[in-house]
């Protein structure tokens, strides 16, 4: 970019572009949390372990009169 071009179209920092756009800020403020909380929830649900078979067997066995 030549000096003349830079004078005509000054390079605007990315962060300033973001802060200048209120609707983009609004969108990101909702979207970032919505997506991350959804992902967190899905990860939590996917990581729940099945009920331990040993405990299940133990409870049923005790009910049957065994120890």
């Amino acid at each position: 970019m030549s000096a003349t071009q830079e004078q005509e179209f000054p390079k605007i920092p990315l962060f300033r572009l973001l802060l200048d756009d209120v609707l983009l800020l609004l969108f990101l403020g909702v979207a970032i949390y919505a997506v991350s909380y959804l992902l967190w929830g899905v990860m939590e649900i996917a990581s729940v372990a099945p009920f331990p078979e040993e405990l299940k067997a133990q409870i049923v066995q005790q009910a049957g009169g065994g120890q």
Binding site: V48, A49, P50, F51, K56, I59, V60, Q62, A63
Partner: peptide, 18 residues
């Protein structure tokens, strides 16, 4: 833990009388 409602009911029913 993940457990089907019917299975939990079975455990509960087995455990209570004891």
């Amino acid at each position: 833990y993940r457990i089907e409602p019917a299975e939990y009911m079975q455990l509960h029913t087995a455990w209570v009388p004891r």
